[in-house]
Design a binder for these strands. Structure first.
Lengths: 129, 129
DNA sequence: ACGATAGTTCAAGAATTATTGAAACATTAG
DNA sequence: CTAATGTTTCAATAATTCTTGAACTATCGT
């Protein structure tokens, strides 16, 4: 993956709705999720969802497949790996002291798909100040 | 790391100048690099560099330290690990089949700091189509 | 104090990105 | 064909981000 493509992929994830969509789809796994389900779960309007999910698709992070009237979206593993691989290679340069621990941690941890990823982060502004 | 902070960090990296700065600083390691050196290396104007590097700093990905007249910037390891950890935990959920290979690769690979990270990606548009 | 060097802040304008409702398209059921 | 559902496209608007030069702050050498 080249610099330009990395910027595209990072830009795709650098928006609260889009990161929420991505996280949700990762949790759903290979089955994917219909657009209307995603919209309902995250509280995003259909037009807005369409706009954002197209960005994710364009960045190669999401795939779409029509099933009857609805369209199911799912994470694109190779796209995700391309981005993460870029970050790992380019930013950690094979030095576990830099970020290896963070990554290897994922090899033994399970259970990220709880509330955190399936809830609308927009409504999560429980801060008072 | 929470959703909101992840968006901030991703936003910081989702810009060609800022990703270039970050990649460059990772290569420079703990010594860091003076603002003027960064600007000269990447061909960014001082005001623009200041603007972008502040975004990186605000996102917790970069530190600054004054040395005489110049200010040296360096990668902030804990910030980088926080972001990468978020991506690993949240997107890979302990499933190496999803992204483990990409990350574990970094544990054995060395040599990302060649031309790629120390060159201005803006001028790198050698594509004809 | 003075002048030079290194960086930042400010303010204006250009460019890009996000939101929305209305209208259109695709699919299914009758 | 008509009606209903699910999703996208369009166009206008709002909001955010990026670039730039001018002015300002901090440090150093004399």
């Amino acid at each position: 993956m080249e610099h330009k493509d990395a910027v595209t992929a990072l830009t795709a994830l650098a928006q609260t709705h889009r990161l929420a969509i991505f996280r949700l789809l990762v949790c759903e796994g290979l089955e994917g999720m219909a657009a209307s389900e995603i919209a309902a779960t995250l509280g995003i309007k259909p037009t807005s969802l369409s706009f954002h999910i197209k960005e994710l698709e364009h960045a190669g992070l999401v795939t779409s497949e029509r099933h009857g009237r609805s369209i199911r979206y799912g994470v694109r593993i190779d796209g995700m790996r391309a981005l993460f691989g870029f970050l790992a290679d380019d930013c950690c340069q094979g030095r576990p002291d830099l970020c290896g621990a963070a990554f290897s941690r994922s090899l033994g941890t399970v259970g990220a798909c709880t509330d955190a990823a399936t809830t609308n982060p927009q409504k999560d502004t429980s801060e008072t100040g």
